[in-house]
Nucleic acid binder design. Sequence first.
RNA 1: GCGGAAUUGGUGAAGUGGUUAACACGGCAGAUUGUGGCUCUGUUAUGCGUGGGUUCGAUUCCCACAUUUCGCCCCA
Length: 421
Amino acid sequence: MISKPKGTVDFIKTDSEYYKYISDVFDAYCEKYNYKYIRTPIFESSELFHRGVGDSSDIVRKETYDFKDRGDRNITLRPEGTAGVVRSFIENKMYADVIQPVKLYYNGTMYRYERPQNGRLREFTQIGVEVFGSNDPLIDAEVISLPINIYNSLGIENTIVKINSLGDNESRENYKKALKEYLKPHLNDLCSDCKERFEKNPLRILDCKVDKDGDILKNAPKISEYLSKESKEHLEKVLEYLDLLEINYEIDENLVRGLDYYTDTVFEIEVNSNELGSSKVIGAGGRYNNLVNSLGGPETSAVGFALGVDRIISVLKLKEINIPIRNEIDAYIMYVNETEKEKAIYLNQILRLNGFSSEINSLNKNLKAQFKEADRYKAKYLIILNSEDFKKSLITIKDNVTKEELKIKELDLVEYLDTHI
RNA sequence: GCGGAAUUGGUGAAGUGGUUAACACGGCAGAUUGUGGCUCUGUUAUGCGUGGGUUCGAUUCCCACAUUUCGCCCCA
Protein backbone atom coordinates (compact mmCIF):
# COMPACT_ATOMS: atom_id res chain seq x y z
CA MET A 1 0.00 0.00 0.00
CA ILE A 2 1.22 3.47 -0.79
CA SER A 3 0.66 5.86 2.05
CA LYS A 4 0.78 9.59 2.21
CA PRO A 5 4.17 11.28 2.49
CA LYS A 6 5.38 12.14 5.94
CA GLY A 7 3.97 15.31 7.34
CA THR A 8 0.98 15.50 5.03
CA VAL A 9 -2.65 15.08 5.87
CA ASP A 10 -5.79 13.98 4.06
CA PHE A 11 -8.69 16.27 4.70
CA ILE A 12 -11.65 13.96 4.56
CA LYS A 13 -15.11 13.78 6.03
CA THR A 14 -15.57 16.33 8.79
CA ASP A 15 -12.05 17.67 8.44
CA SER A 16 -12.67 18.68 4.86
CA GLU A 17 -15.95 20.27 5.92
CA TYR A 18 -14.09 22.25 8.56
CA TYR A 19 -11.54 23.28 6.00
CA LYS A 20 -14.17 24.45 3.57
CA TYR A 21 -16.10 26.26 6.25
CA ILE A 22 -13.08 28.13 7.57
CA SER A 23 -12.11 29.15 4.05
CA ASP A 24 -15.62 30.35 3.36
CA VAL A 25 -15.78 32.44 6.53
CA PHE A 26 -12.36 33.86 5.84
CA ASP A 27 -13.21 34.74 2.24
CA ALA A 28 -16.46 36.36 3.26
CA TYR A 29 -14.75 38.55 5.84
CA CYS A 30 -11.97 39.55 3.47
CA GLU A 31 -14.55 40.63 0.95
CA LYS A 32 -16.30 42.72 3.58
CA TYR A 33 -12.99 44.32 4.45
CA ASN A 34 -12.60 45.08 0.75
CA TYR A 35 -9.65 42.80 0.07
CA LYS A 36 -9.13 41.22 -3.35
CA TYR A 37 -8.33 37.58 -3.87
CA ILE A 38 -4.90 36.73 -5.23
CA ARG A 39 -3.64 33.32 -6.24
CA THR A 40 0.08 32.93 -6.82
CA PRO A 41 2.08 29.82 -7.79
CA ILE A 42 2.82 27.09 -5.29
CA PHE A 43 6.40 27.01 -6.55
CA GLU A 44 8.63 29.99 -7.24
CA SER A 45 12.23 30.64 -8.17
CA SER A 46 14.34 29.61 -5.21
CA GLU A 47 16.00 32.97 -4.89
CA LEU A 48 12.69 34.61 -4.01
CA PHE A 49 12.74 32.83 -0.66
CA HIS A 50 16.48 32.88 -0.20
CA ARG A 51 16.85 36.63 -0.52
CA GLY A 52 15.78 39.44 1.69
CA VAL A 53 15.45 37.24 4.70
CA GLY A 54 18.67 38.31 6.40
CA ASP A 55 21.28 36.24 8.16
CA SER A 56 19.01 33.40 9.06
CA SER A 57 18.74 32.49 5.39
CA ASP A 58 21.04 29.49 5.75
CA ILE A 59 18.58 27.98 8.18
CA VAL A 60 15.66 28.84 6.02
CA ARG A 61 17.28 27.16 3.07
CA LYS A 62 17.52 23.86 4.88
CA GLU A 63 13.83 23.75 5.55
CA THR A 64 12.48 24.41 2.11
CA TYR A 65 11.62 21.93 -0.60
CA ASP A 66 14.17 22.83 -3.27
CA PHE A 67 14.65 21.07 -6.56
CA LYS A 68 15.83 21.62 -10.08
CA ASP A 69 13.27 21.31 -12.82
CA ARG A 70 14.02 19.76 -16.21
CA GLY A 71 15.10 23.12 -17.52
CA ASP A 72 17.71 23.26 -14.78
CA ARG A 73 15.91 26.07 -12.97
CA ASN A 74 16.13 26.27 -9.19
CA ILE A 75 12.62 25.90 -7.87
CA THR A 76 11.30 26.06 -4.32
CA LEU A 77 7.89 25.10 -3.02
CA ARG A 78 6.65 28.15 -1.19
CA PRO A 79 7.25 27.95 2.56
CA GLU A 80 4.95 30.91 3.24
CA GLY A 81 2.58 33.19 1.42
CA THR A 82 4.04 36.64 1.71
CA ALA A 83 7.04 36.38 -0.61
CA GLY A 84 4.99 35.21 -3.57
CA VAL A 85 2.42 37.93 -3.09
CA VAL A 86 5.15 40.56 -2.82
CA ARG A 87 6.77 39.19 -5.97
CA SER A 88 3.47 39.40 -7.79
CA PHE A 89 2.85 42.91 -6.47
CA ILE A 90 6.16 44.05 -7.92
CA GLU A 91 6.00 42.07 -11.14
CA ASN A 92 2.52 43.30 -11.96
CA LYS A 93 3.41 46.85 -10.93
CA MET A 94 0.52 47.03 -8.53
CA TYR A 95 2.27 49.98 -6.87
CA ALA A 96 0.99 51.93 -9.85
CA ASP A 97 -2.61 50.79 -9.49
CA VAL A 98 -5.19 53.53 -9.32
CA ILE A 99 -6.62 52.14 -6.11
CA GLN A 100 -4.24 52.36 -3.20
CA PRO A 101 -3.48 50.82 -0.82
CA VAL A 102 -3.51 47.42 -2.49
CA LYS A 103 -5.30 44.96 -0.23
CA LEU A 104 -4.99 41.28 -1.06
CA TYR A 105 -5.94 37.95 0.49
CA TYR A 106 -4.77 34.46 -0.32
CA ASN A 107 -5.41 30.90 0.66
CA GLY A 108 -3.13 28.00 -0.13
CA THR A 109 -0.80 25.20 0.78
CA MET A 110 2.73 25.89 2.00
CA TYR A 111 5.65 23.48 2.28
CA ARG A 112 8.40 23.21 4.84
CA TYR A 113 10.78 20.32 5.23
CA GLU A 114 10.50 19.99 8.99
CA ARG A 115 10.00 17.28 11.52
CA PRO A 116 6.26 17.03 11.96
CA GLN A 117 4.79 17.51 15.41
CA ASN A 118 1.77 19.02 17.01
CA GLY A 119 0.39 21.72 14.72
CA ARG A 120 3.26 21.38 12.31
CA LEU A 121 3.11 19.61 9.00
CA ARG A 122 5.23 19.53 5.89
CA GLU A 123 2.32 20.53 3.75
CA PHE A 124 -0.02 22.88 5.51
CA THR A 125 -2.57 25.46 4.56
CA GLN A 126 -2.34 29.11 5.35
CA ILE A 127 -4.71 31.91 4.65
CA GLY A 128 -3.67 35.49 5.02
CA VAL A 129 -3.80 39.06 3.84
CA GLU A 130 -1.25 41.64 2.73
CA VAL A 131 -1.71 45.39 2.42
CA PHE A 132 0.70 47.45 0.34
CA GLY A 133 1.16 51.16 0.15
CA SER A 134 -0.01 52.55 3.45
CA ASN A 135 1.99 53.16 6.58
CA ASP A 136 -1.07 54.38 8.44
CA PRO A 137 -1.43 52.66 11.82
CA LEU A 138 -5.09 52.17 11.05
CA ILE A 139 -4.04 49.53 8.54
CA ASP A 140 -2.00 47.74 11.21
CA ALA A 141 -5.07 47.78 13.40
CA GLU A 142 -7.26 46.55 10.54
CA VAL A 143 -4.93 43.67 9.79
CA ILE A 144 -5.00 42.68 13.44
CA SER A 145 -8.72 43.06 13.89
CA LEU A 146 -9.62 41.09 10.79
CA PRO A 147 -8.44 37.70 12.05
CA ILE A 148 -9.84 38.41 15.51
CA ASN A 149 -13.25 39.01 14.03
CA ILE A 150 -12.93 35.87 11.94
CA TYR A 151 -12.06 33.82 15.03
CA ASN A 152 -15.01 35.26 16.88
CA SER A 153 -17.26 34.45 14.00
CA LEU A 154 -15.96 30.87 13.98
CA GLY A 155 -16.71 30.63 17.68
CA ILE A 156 -13.14 30.91 18.91
CA GLU A 157 -13.21 33.40 21.71
CA ASN A 158 -10.69 34.18 24.42
CA THR A 159 -8.02 35.09 21.94
CA ILE A 160 -5.32 37.51 22.90
CA VAL A 161 -3.15 39.60 20.64
CA LYS A 162 0.49 39.82 21.68
CA ILE A 163 1.98 42.87 20.11
CA ASN A 164 5.35 44.53 19.96
CA SER A 165 7.29 46.96 17.83
CA LEU A 166 10.66 46.18 16.36
CA GLY A 167 11.13 49.74 15.19
CA ASP A 168 12.85 50.76 12.01
CA ASN A 169 16.15 49.32 10.81
CA GLU A 170 18.24 51.75 12.75
CA SER A 171 16.50 51.31 16.07
CA ARG A 172 16.64 47.57 15.66
CA GLU A 173 20.34 47.51 14.88
CA ASN A 174 21.04 49.74 17.87
CA TYR A 175 18.99 47.52 20.06
CA LYS A 176 20.65 44.38 18.78
CA LYS A 177 24.02 45.89 19.58
CA ALA A 178 22.94 46.90 23.08
CA LEU A 179 21.44 43.50 23.74
CA LYS A 180 24.60 41.71 22.68
CA GLU A 181 26.71 43.98 24.82
CA TYR A 182 24.47 43.30 27.78
CA LEU A 183 24.43 39.54 27.24
CA LYS A 184 28.09 39.08 26.53
CA PRO A 185 29.26 38.86 30.17
CA HIS A 186 26.37 36.47 30.94
CA LEU A 187 26.99 34.21 28.00
CA ASN A 188 28.11 31.28 30.11
CA ASP A 189 24.93 31.36 32.15
CA LEU A 190 22.69 30.99 29.14
CA CYS A 191 21.44 27.69 27.75
CA SER A 192 23.43 26.03 25.00
CA ASP A 193 20.91 27.00 22.34
CA CYS A 194 21.11 30.63 23.36
CA LYS A 195 24.86 30.62 23.03
CA GLU A 196 24.38 29.75 19.40
CA ARG A 197 21.63 32.30 18.97
CA PHE A 198 23.94 34.96 20.32
CA GLU A 199 25.74 35.23 17.01
CA LYS A 200 23.05 34.05 14.64
CA ASN A 201 19.92 35.70 15.88
CA PRO A 202 20.36 37.42 19.27
CA LEU A 203 16.81 38.76 19.36
CA ARG A 204 15.48 35.25 19.62
CA ILE A 205 17.23 34.78 22.95
CA LEU A 206 14.39 36.87 24.35
CA ASP A 207 12.08 34.07 23.27
CA CYS A 208 14.10 31.34 24.99
CA LYS A 209 12.05 28.74 26.84
CA VAL A 210 14.86 27.72 29.17
CA ASP A 211 16.10 31.09 30.37
CA LYS A 212 12.76 32.83 30.17
CA ASP A 213 12.33 33.27 33.89
CA GLY A 214 15.94 34.03 34.77
CA ASP A 215 17.14 37.40 35.93
CA ILE A 216 19.45 37.77 32.96
CA LEU A 217 16.59 38.18 30.54
CA LYS A 218 14.41 40.05 32.98
CA ASN A 219 17.01 42.76 33.34
CA ALA A 220 17.92 42.84 29.66
CA PRO A 221 17.49 46.11 27.82
CA LYS A 222 14.05 46.61 26.29
CA ILE A 223 13.40 47.26 22.65
CA SER A 224 11.01 50.02 23.63
CA GLU A 225 13.93 52.06 24.95
CA TYR A 226 15.51 52.02 21.51
CA LEU A 227 12.57 52.91 19.33
CA SER A 228 12.74 56.06 17.27
CA LYS A 229 10.19 58.78 17.86
CA GLU A 230 8.28 57.76 14.71
CA SER A 231 8.19 54.11 15.69
CA LYS A 232 6.98 54.95 19.17
CA GLU A 233 4.21 57.11 17.82
CA HIS A 234 3.30 54.46 15.30
CA LEU A 235 2.93 51.83 18.01
CA GLU A 236 0.93 54.17 20.23
CA LYS A 237 -1.49 54.88 17.42
CA VAL A 238 -1.89 51.21 16.60
CA LEU A 239 -2.74 50.50 20.23
CA GLU A 240 -5.12 53.42 20.34
CA TYR A 241 -6.97 52.12 17.29
CA LEU A 242 -7.07 48.62 18.74
CA ASP A 243 -8.72 50.06 21.83
CA LEU A 244 -11.18 51.80 19.59
CA LEU A 245 -11.98 48.48 17.90
CA GLU A 246 -12.23 46.74 21.27
CA ILE A 247 -9.48 44.26 20.52
CA ASN A 248 -7.78 42.69 23.52
CA TYR A 249 -4.05 42.97 23.32
CA GLU A 250 -1.02 42.62 25.46
CA ILE A 251 2.32 44.25 24.82
CA ASP A 252 5.00 41.59 24.76
CA GLU A 253 8.46 43.07 24.57
CA ASN A 254 9.96 39.66 24.07
CA LEU A 255 7.95 39.01 20.95
CA VAL A 256 10.36 38.93 18.06
CA ARG A 257 10.03 37.42 14.66
CA GLY A 258 12.49 35.13 13.03
CA LEU A 259 13.21 37.13 9.94
CA ASP A 260 14.80 40.50 9.50
CA TYR A 261 12.37 42.14 7.16
CA TYR A 262 9.86 43.03 9.81
CA THR A 263 9.64 46.65 10.88
CA ASP A 264 7.55 48.29 13.57
CA THR A 265 4.46 46.27 14.39
CA VAL A 266 4.73 42.54 14.98
CA PHE A 267 1.96 40.48 16.53
CA GLU A 268 0.82 36.99 17.32
CA ILE A 269 -2.65 35.82 18.17
CA GLU A 270 -2.93 33.17 20.84
CA VAL A 271 -5.89 31.12 21.84
CA ASN A 272 -6.36 30.51 25.51
CA SER A 273 -5.96 26.77 25.92
CA ASN A 274 -3.70 24.48 27.86
CA GLU A 275 -4.24 21.45 25.69
CA LEU A 276 -2.70 23.03 22.63
CA GLY A 277 0.80 23.47 23.95
CA SER A 278 3.08 25.17 21.53
CA SER A 279 0.47 25.38 18.81
CA LYS A 280 -1.74 27.83 20.62
CA VAL A 281 -0.48 30.56 18.31
CA ILE A 282 -3.16 30.59 15.67
CA GLY A 283 -2.13 33.60 13.66
CA ALA A 284 0.74 35.97 13.29
CA GLY A 285 1.90 38.87 11.23
CA GLY A 286 3.45 42.25 11.15
CA ARG A 287 4.62 45.19 9.18
CA TYR A 288 7.42 44.76 6.68
CA ASN A 289 8.20 48.10 5.11
CA ASN A 290 11.53 46.86 3.73
CA LEU A 291 10.60 43.72 1.90
CA VAL A 292 9.13 45.15 -1.29
CA ASN A 293 12.19 47.26 -1.75
CA SER A 294 14.63 44.48 -1.01
CA LEU A 295 12.94 42.26 -3.58
CA GLY A 296 13.41 44.88 -6.25
CA GLY A 297 10.29 47.02 -5.97
CA PRO A 298 9.93 50.63 -4.96
CA GLU A 299 9.94 51.63 -1.29
CA THR A 300 6.54 50.42 -0.22
CA SER A 301 4.97 50.12 3.18
CA ALA A 302 3.37 46.78 3.78
CA VAL A 303 1.68 44.81 6.53
CA GLY A 304 0.09 41.39 6.64
CA PHE A 305 -0.87 38.36 8.64
CA ALA A 306 -1.36 34.66 8.06
CA LEU A 307 -3.03 31.89 9.95
CA GLY A 308 -2.74 28.13 9.75
CA VAL A 309 -5.98 26.46 8.80
CA ASP A 310 -4.88 23.12 10.21
CA ARG A 311 -4.44 24.65 13.62
CA ILE A 312 -7.78 26.37 13.47
CA ILE A 313 -9.38 23.02 12.72
CA SER A 314 -7.70 21.50 15.80
CA VAL A 315 -8.95 24.36 17.92
CA LEU A 316 -12.50 24.05 16.63
CA LYS A 317 -12.49 20.32 17.30
CA LEU A 318 -10.87 20.69 20.70
CA LYS A 319 -13.41 23.28 21.75
CA GLU A 320 -16.15 21.13 20.25
CA ILE A 321 -17.40 23.93 18.09
CA ASN A 322 -19.84 22.58 15.56
CA ILE A 323 -20.04 23.90 12.08
CA PRO A 324 -22.87 23.65 9.60
CA ILE A 325 -22.46 20.43 7.67
CA ARG A 326 -24.89 19.20 5.06
CA ASN A 327 -25.63 15.68 6.14
CA GLU A 328 -28.96 15.00 4.57
CA ILE A 329 -30.49 14.86 1.15
CA ASP A 330 -33.91 15.89 -0.02
CA ALA A 331 -34.86 12.69 -1.75
CA TYR A 332 -33.82 9.12 -2.33
CA ILE A 333 -35.30 7.34 -5.29
CA MET A 334 -35.93 3.61 -5.01
CA TYR A 335 -36.38 1.09 -7.77
CA VAL A 336 -36.19 -2.63 -8.31
CA ASN A 337 -36.34 -3.54 -11.99
CA GLU A 338 -34.76 -2.05 -15.10
CA THR A 339 -37.88 -0.11 -16.17
CA GLU A 340 -38.05 1.51 -12.79
CA LYS A 341 -34.33 2.14 -12.82
CA GLU A 342 -34.57 4.14 -16.03
CA LYS A 343 -37.35 6.19 -14.54
CA ALA A 344 -35.23 6.67 -11.42
CA ILE A 345 -32.26 7.91 -13.41
CA TYR A 346 -34.48 10.37 -15.20
CA LEU A 347 -36.24 11.63 -12.08
CA ASN A 348 -32.94 11.92 -10.27
CA GLN A 349 -31.77 14.40 -12.85
CA ILE A 350 -35.05 16.29 -12.79
CA LEU A 351 -34.76 16.75 -9.04
CA ARG A 352 -31.16 17.84 -9.19
CA LEU A 353 -31.78 20.32 -11.95
CA ASN A 354 -34.60 21.77 -9.91
CA GLY A 355 -32.38 22.42 -6.96
CA PHE A 356 -32.96 19.36 -4.82
CA SER A 357 -30.28 17.04 -3.58
CA SER A 358 -31.11 13.47 -4.46
CA GLU A 359 -29.59 10.08 -4.81
CA ILE A 360 -30.26 6.63 -6.21
CA ASN A 361 -28.72 3.26 -5.54
CA SER A 362 -25.87 2.30 -7.83
CA LEU A 363 -24.90 -0.96 -6.13
CA ASN A 364 -27.72 -3.23 -7.25
CA LYS A 365 -29.22 -3.22 -3.82
CA ASN A 366 -32.49 -4.89 -3.08
CA LEU A 367 -35.39 -2.84 -1.81
CA LYS A 368 -34.58 -3.49 1.82
CA ALA A 369 -31.01 -2.37 1.44
CA GLN A 370 -32.22 0.72 -0.39
CA PHE A 371 -34.34 1.68 2.58
CA LYS A 372 -31.30 1.34 4.77
CA GLU A 373 -29.23 3.41 2.43
CA ALA A 374 -31.86 6.13 2.31
CA ASP A 375 -31.73 6.33 6.09
CA ARG A 376 -27.97 6.60 6.05
CA TYR A 377 -28.24 9.48 3.66
CA LYS A 378 -30.89 10.98 5.95
CA ALA A 379 -33.17 11.40 3.00
CA LYS A 380 -36.16 13.59 3.77
CA TYR A 381 -38.34 11.96 1.15
CA LEU A 382 -38.35 8.52 -0.38
CA ILE A 383 -39.57 8.18 -3.89
CA ILE A 384 -40.59 4.57 -4.38
CA LEU A 385 -41.02 3.54 -7.97
CA ASN A 386 -43.37 0.80 -8.99
CA SER A 387 -43.87 -0.20 -12.62
CA GLU A 388 -47.59 -0.66 -12.02
CA ASP A 389 -47.93 3.00 -11.08
CA PHE A 390 -46.27 4.16 -14.28
CA LYS A 391 -49.32 3.23 -16.30
CA LYS A 392 -51.19 5.91 -14.42
CA SER A 393 -48.22 8.30 -14.40
CA LEU A 394 -48.11 7.98 -10.66
CA ILE A 395 -45.25 7.66 -8.26
CA THR A 396 -45.15 6.93 -4.55
CA ILE A 397 -43.59 9.47 -2.27
CA LYS A 398 -42.99 8.85 1.39
CA ASP A 399 -42.13 11.38 4.03
CA ASN A 400 -39.26 9.68 5.80
CA VAL A 401 -39.91 11.50 9.04
CA THR A 402 -43.64 11.08 9.47
CA LYS A 403 -43.65 7.87 7.40
CA GLU A 404 -46.71 9.13 5.58
CA GLU A 405 -46.93 7.75 2.10
CA LEU A 406 -48.99 8.85 -0.85
CA LYS A 407 -49.18 8.57 -4.58
CA ILE A 408 -48.82 11.69 -6.64
CA LYS A 409 -48.65 12.47 -10.32
CA GLU A 410 -45.13 12.15 -11.61
CA LEU A 411 -45.39 15.62 -13.10
CA ASP A 412 -46.27 17.07 -9.71
CA LEU A 413 -43.13 15.77 -8.04
CA VAL A 414 -41.09 18.96 -8.19
CA GLU A 415 -44.00 21.08 -7.11
CA TYR A 416 -44.74 18.71 -4.24
CA LEU A 417 -41.21 18.87 -2.93
CA ASP A 418 -41.14 22.63 -3.45
CA THR A 419 -44.06 23.07 -1.14
CA HIS A 420 -42.93 20.51 1.43
CA ILE A 421 -39.21 21.21 1.83
C1' G B 1 19.15 17.43 13.20
C1' C B 2 18.27 15.44 18.78
C1' G B 3 15.26 12.71 22.51
C1' G B 4 10.63 9.90 24.54
C1' A B 5 6.20 6.89 23.37
C1' A B 6 3.33 4.10 19.98
C1' U B 7 2.14 0.74 15.47
C1' U B 8 -3.01 -5.86 15.92
C1' G B 9 -9.04 -6.64 10.65
C1' G B 10 -13.29 -1.36 7.62
C1' U B 11 -13.43 0.89 13.01
C1' G B 12 -12.66 0.58 18.59
C1' A B 13 -9.66 -2.73 20.65
C1' A B 14 -8.18 -7.71 24.10
C1' G B 15 -4.16 -11.05 24.03
C1' U B 16 -0.01 -14.97 23.91
C1' G B 17 7.32 -17.78 22.61
C1' G B 18 3.84 -23.01 20.12
C1' U B 19 -2.27 -26.07 17.16
C1' U B 20 -8.99 -22.07 15.39
C1' A B 21 -5.71 -14.26 17.76
C1' A B 22 -11.02 -12.72 21.92
C1' C B 23 -15.01 -9.21 22.16
C1' A B 24 -17.76 -5.02 20.24
C1' C B 25 -19.35 -1.88 16.17
C1' G B 26 -19.75 -1.73 11.09
C1' G B 27 -20.47 -4.48 6.13
C1' C B 28 -22.89 -8.43 3.37
C1' A B 29 -26.60 -12.49 2.92
C1' G B 30 -30.86 -14.73 4.95
C1' A B 31 -35.26 -15.33 8.49
C1' U B 32 -39.16 -12.36 10.60
C1' U B 33 -41.46 -7.51 9.78
C1' G B 34 -47.51 -4.85 4.88
C1' U B 35 -41.49 -1.69 2.14
C1' G B 36 -36.07 -0.61 5.90
C1' G B 37 -35.17 1.17 10.91
C1' C B 38 -36.25 -4.02 16.29
C1' U B 39 -34.85 -9.19 16.85
C1' C B 40 -32.43 -13.73 15.27
C1' U B 41 -28.94 -16.77 12.09
C1' G B 42 -24.86 -17.06 9.01
C1' U B 43 -20.83 -14.56 6.97
C1' U B 44 -16.81 -10.81 6.63
C1' A B 45 -10.62 -14.54 1.55
C1' U B 46 -3.74 -16.88 3.37
C1' G B 47 -4.82 -10.05 9.21
C1' C B 48 -0.63 -8.73 14.25
C1' G B 49 3.80 -1.53 10.26
C1' U B 50 8.39 -3.17 6.87
C1' G B 51 13.05 -5.79 6.66
C1' G B 52 16.50 -8.61 9.15
C1' G B 53 18.11 -11.66 13.49
C1' U B 54 17.61 -15.13 17.91
C1' U B 55 14.69 -19.82 18.21
C1' C B 56 12.65 -26.40 16.70
C1' G B 57 8.88 -22.44 16.38
C1' A B 58 7.67 -15.19 16.82
C1' U B 59 2.29 -11.28 16.23
C1' U B 60 4.80 -11.94 21.09
C1' C B 61 12.26 -11.33 22.29
C1' C B 62 16.48 -8.29 19.78
C1' C B 63 18.18 -4.78 15.85
C1' A B 64 17.30 -1.51 11.85
C1' C B 65 13.94 1.28 8.99
C1' A B 66 9.15 3.57 8.08
C1' U B 67 4.99 6.02 9.88
C1' U B 68 2.25 8.32 13.88
C1' U B 69 2.55 11.10 18.23
C1' C B 70 4.91 14.30 22.21
C1' G B 71 8.98 17.53 23.29
C1' C B 72 13.81 20.17 21.76
C1' C B 73 15.95 22.97 17.58
C1' C B 74 13.59 26.17 14.06
C1' C B 75 9.21 28.73 13.09
C1' A B 76 8.89 32.65 7.14
